[in-house]
Design a protein around this nucleic acid. Sequence first.
DNA 1: TAGGCCATCTGGTCCT
DNA 2: AGGACCAGATGGCCTA
Length: 357
Amino acid sequence: MTKRFGKPGEGDVSELVSSLAWLEEDLSSQDGERGPEMGGRYGLGPGGRGSIELGSEDMDQEEEDNYNDDDEETGMDGENEGPKRRGPKKKKMARGRQERFKARRTKANARERSRMHGLNDALDVLRKVMPCASKTQKLSKIETLRLARNYIWALSEVLESGQSPESHGFTEMLCKGLSQPTSNLVAGCLQLGPSAPKMINKLDDKPFGGAPGLGSGVAGQPGGHHPLSGHYPSPGLPSPPYGSLEASHILHMKSFEGGPYEQHPSPNECSSNGTPPYDGPLTPPLSISGNFALKQEPSPHEAERNYPSHPSHYLSSLPHYPPSSLAGLPGPQGERSIHSPASGPPTHLHIHRPVTL
DNA sequence: TAGGCCATCTGGTCCT
DNA sequence: AGGACCAGATGGCCTA
């Protein structure tokens, strides 16, 4: 049995109340023992870590005053034995204070949950604007961040040097430092020719950020499969866990070829492969002011608004700056070699002109 | 079954 | 005092 909060962060107070009610009910039904489903969630946390151990809500009120007594010294308490606690003895907590602490802790937990949900929502938004947004299999957090970093880097290259988003260099930049499955995903989203696998393998030379290398599996990609069929893996590939792909994002990048920041139709129309149109939460307007940044973090509910789903959409309204005006962007660690994708993405990307996309 | 990823709890620290 | 942020710990779920 797995218990989860329905939608934490939605109704803070009511959630808190229901959570507490659930906790009480569950604890009483388990006779003070942590059920296996408690696990780390809503559980009482690792016992004996903190200096104040109040997580034990199953503690009898009558025992509160004896809390922290003998069994602490021996470290043995029957079935609840744990590592012997070191350090100074904890101070007893008055009952009132303990209850206040408990309430505060519960509130803090709810806030923390909410905060993490906000963070995850932001990551979801980020996933949606990645060139390989997949409806069936979402990128992990770390891969999302890596891909986002690479994407920003690659887009800056497009803006700066007019490099085609279909070029190998663009793909290299996107795949730099990504895990094997994510690289496969990216490669599948991009229209790679038969030579692409080799090219990707070369990226294994200098993976940055401690990410796993890119090499081994991709090389098995047979040339016959067109990645834009919308489904990976192709026969012979190590099977990435990704299913149907949404290649529309990268297709939109083609609008660069038809002219600078050419207006294109809705991103959802670009799946020429029968892939269902992207219907996820849409993205709020982006603003470039020193970096790429979301103007405003949408609340979970705001995610339902009708934002265009891809940055390239905003590029259509971007004032046209000749690529040369972006020359001199700093490289990685402040001195990026702009035309050397293998050197890795910049750690600091400065776009000095404030541009509203 | 191991490993990756994730959600949650928790206590510490900093800030208002 | 209380909130935000952070990192460590823990256990569940899933996949190879």
